[in-house]
Structures are given as structure tokens and as C-alpha cells.
Amino acid sequence: MSLLWIAVIAASVLSFVQKWIGYQAPQDVLEGPRISRITTLLPIALLGALVATQTAVSGAEIVLDARLAGLAAGVVLLLLRAPFLAVVVGAAVVAAALRALGWA
């Protein structure tokens, strides 16, 4: 068995154990004000990190290309309270137009 498969199996077991430990936590600990605030804000932080990573990183380097302009267009459309579908399509159109003009 290769080292890669050992790492995959170990990560799977650790993930299972972590989830199991989460189920064993007492309810009063999970309902505390600090934990409640953290669990409310954690998905927002993770989504923001994912968007930033997918927008500004290519491989191992930071790049500024049409994806960043598309994200900026999406933010402007969100601030204008456009429907979500319009935000997605608008951001895609801006990114595609800039790529078509040669700004990859």
C-alpha cells in the first residue's frame, strides 16, 4: 500500500473521529454565547476564503485577471440589490468579455 493511500485512510479515520467527538459534546456547551457566535460566523468566513482563493490564486501564485473584475462586477450588482441570477450572469459576462479582449 502506498503512502498516499495510508494518508487517505488516516484522514478518513481522523475525520470520522472528529465528527463523533462533536456528537458527544454536551448540549449546554454548544448553546453558549461564544460558541453560538462562532458557529454563526464560521460559514461566512469559510465562504469568503473560498471566493478569495478561487478568484485571486492560480496554482501557487497570486494573479489579477478577469476573475477579479468579474467578482467586482458581482459585488456592484449585489450592492444594487440585483437578483442573484443577474449577479451570477453579470459577473460571468464581465469576466468572459475581458477574457475575449485578451485580458486572461
Score class of each variant (00 low, 15 high):
V8G: 00
S58R: 12
L47N: 09
D65I: 04
G102A: 09
Q27F: 14
A72T: 06
S36F: 10
G48E: 10
Q18P: 00
A45R: 05
S36P: 01
V76H: 04
L3A: 07
L50N: 04
A66I: 03
V75W: 05
P33K: 14
I35T: 12
P33S: 13
V57N: 09
V29R: 11
S15G: 14
L46S: 08
I44N: 08
V76R: 00
V87K: 01
R81C: 03
V89S: 05
L64C: 12
A97S: 15
G48K: 08
A97Q: 12
A95G: 02
S36A: 10
V57A: 12
L101H: 03
L98R: 05
A91M: 05
W20R: 10
A96I: 13
A10M: 07
V75N: 00
V17S: 08
V57D: 09
S58W: 08
Q54G: 08
L98T: 04
S36T: 15
T55D: 04
A10P: 08
V76C: 05
E61Y: 13
L85H: 04
A25W: 13
L47C: 10
A49T: 06
L14Q: 11
L85C: 00
R34L: 15
I35D: 03
P26Y: 12
L50Y: 10
M1D: 10
V29S: 13
V94L: 08
R81D: 06
A49S: 11
L79T: 04
A7H: 06
L77D: 02
V94W: 00
W5H: 13
G22H: 09
V75H: 04
T40R: 06
P43I: 07
A69R: 00
R67Y: 03
A56K: 01
A95E: 09
L4I: 14
I62V: 15
Q54Y: 07
V87R: 01
S2K: 02
S2Q: 02
A73H: 00
L78P: 00
V17E: 12
S15P: 10
V75D: 02
Q18D: 04
L41Y: 08
L47V: 14
V57R: 14
L78K: 00
V93I: 14
L46C: 04
L101P: 06
L50P: 01
L71Q: 01
A95C: 06
L50T: 10
A104G: 01
S12N: 06
G59N: 07
W20F: 10
L101C: 11
L41F: 08
K19G: 11
S36M: 09
V76M: 04
V76P: 00
P26Q: 14
V57I: 15
S12F: 15
E61W: 07
L50K: 04
I9Q: 07
Y23C: 02
Q27W: 13
R81H: 06
S15T: 15
T39Y: 10
V63R: 15
V63M: 14
L98H: 03
A100W: 15
A86I: 11
L46D: 01
A11Q: 05
A10F: 08
W5V: 13
E61V: 13
V75F: 05
I9H: 02
R81F: 01
S15L: 14
I21R: 15
P33H: 09
A66K: 03
A73D: 00
L77P: 03
P33R: 11
L41D: 09
G48A: 12
A45W: 13
V13D: 02
G32D: 12
A100V: 07
P33M: 11
V63G: 12
T39V: 08
L46P: 02
R67V: 01
A49N: 02
